[in-house]
Amino acid sequence: MTAEPHELISVRAPEQIVESLKVDRSPRNIRACLPPADRDYFDEDFRRAMAKATEELDLAPVNALLAHWWHMARMKATGEYEEVLEHGARIQEQIERGEYVPGRPLREVLAERASELGVKLDL
């Protein structure tokens, strides 16, 4: 008989996931808060970021990855992720029909967000 690692699978309400993410931003908790279908992607991304951090002696890739997946876990728990996808699809349809889509240019939004993070983008 072999002993294989296993995860305790528990179903949590979206509010419980959001609360958990507020108090624990560890890789283990972020992964546990993701839908099971996303966990392999998280694992792959995390291992790649850790390898890069080890090679470059810089934790910035790991921190950026954890921030990304933290937001994904939160958005997927609350349904915001699907709303964003649906909104994006509606905008894409408008663009394809040649309709005017109000808003700010993506380049401007990205530059603003990068500035807030202290990152210089070459757009």
Rank of each mutant, 00 (worst) to 15 (best):
V18M: 04
V101Y: 12
E112I: 00
Y81F: 02
R39K: 08
T2K: 09
L121K: 13
M50W: 12
R97W: 01
I30R: 03
L65H: 02
E86N: 14
D40M: 14
K120F: 09
E93M: 11
Y41D: 06
P36S: 10
L65F: 14
R104N: 02
A60V: 14
P105V: 13
K52A: 12
A111K: 01
G103S: 01
P27T: 02
A13F: 11
A60N: 11
V101N: 04
P5S: 13
L57R: 10
N29M: 10
I91A: 10
S10M: 12
R28F: 09
H87W: 13
R104E: 12
R39D: 08
L106V: 10
P36W: 06
A49L: 04
N63E: 03
L85V: 14
M75A: 15
E83F: 12
A3P: 00
E7C: 15
E80I: 07
A73S: 05
G79Q: 13
A67T: 13
V11S: 11
R25G: 09
A77H: 14
E93S: 07
P5I: 09
M1K: 06
G79I: 11
Q94L: 12
R28K: 09
L57F: 14
H87R: 13
A67L: 02
L117C: 01
A114L: 02
M75G: 11
Q94F: 05
E116K: 15
V84N: 15
P35G: 15
P61S: 08
